[in-house]
Design a protein around this nucleic acid. Structure first.
Lengths: 163, 163
DNA sequence: GACTTGCGTTCCGTCATGGAACGGATGGAC
DNA sequence: GTCCATCCGTTCCATGACGGAACGCAAGTC
């Protein structure tokens, strides 16, 4: 089970973003989770809907399962067939995707507007994602955030001394 | 100026996430924006702090400039030296990174807790990012969102017919 | 004149990617 | 029983992205 990591591995840097990037900072992983959020579960469906190579798909799905983002669930046994579903950890990636969609709508969409409208069934409105502070509920701005080493910080991995 | 895209290009799919992923779904791009958010501006600093190869760094920075996420600003002319700063578009990537950090803290951090605490100067509290609905302000859950084709949707690019 | 800083470019070996073909287990049609 | 389709992969191979190391080059500094 080759794990395909030779490019710099940032999963053990003392930075959550770097760690998350090791998992989510990948073209296909991101799209696979997106597709799973839209309801796709089967190998062939992922393959057809994304146009990803079957060999790459196999690797990526196994990797996502190893990372706890997806799980294999056998849905029939003659012949054995399993589908790939998001775990809770995987489901919680969705807000990140929604934030990316909001950013994309603002900066990348053409004159026609967004290609994808998100409808929030909880409040029954079309919406977009907003990232807010957990304490004061105000939208986040880079310039109002200071990053500081936390309890889990160790200086021994990241090339940089500064975080 | 080789643009280094041979792997499947999703930038014109009728899906904002796919488009955003074409820009942000990359290991280094994500980390470069993170680093820029933390204040890094100079070529050598990026190189040292991230441990990225100089050739790769050159390509990535140029790409980010082309995409409007960063801009070159000359800070002295003898000799000509320029630094790379985030544009507004780039600065607005930060909420996505913050959302990724929150996810990483929840699912990837060790027993010691987060390696990086975010302090919100606006309300003067340590915080984490929460992604909420723009209409009802409630946190987003995959199962409460329905995606529907929007005005900018065209079925002619993405392999899949379904969105 | 030698050394340092800042910012790249060039060269090259290695590994990931992606296309295509193959495989193998089962179920259905005839 | 035989042929064909479905589903889920694996294997093979050419291409090209990655990453390390060395080189280039302009200007300032001692």
């Amino acid at each position: 089970m080759p794990v395909d990591v030779k490019r710099v591995d940032t999963s053990d840097w003392p930075c959550t973003i770097a760690r998350s990037a090791a998992v989510l900072g990948d073209h296909w992983n991101l799209l696979l989770v997106r597709q799973a959020c839209l309801g796709t579960r089967r190998f062939d469906d992922f393959q057809r809907e994304l146009g990803i190579g079957r060999n790459i798909l196999t690797r990526r799905l196994n990797q996502l399962v190893d990372e706890g983002i997806m799980q294999r669930v056998e849905y029939q046994s003659h012949p054995p067939r399993s589908e790939y579903r998001l775990t809770q950890q995987g489901r919680e990636v969705y807000p990140i995707l929604a934030a990316m969609a909001a950013w994309g709508d603002r900066w990348l969409s053409g004159p026609d507007g967004t290609p994808l409208v998100l409808h929030h069934t909880a409040c029954d409105h079309d919406m977009h994602a907003v990232v807010v502070c957990s304490v004061c509920d105000e939208p986040i701005d880079v310039q109002e955030i200071k990053a500081q080493p936390g309890p889990g910080y160790r200086a021994d991995h990241e090339p940089s001394a500064t975080v």
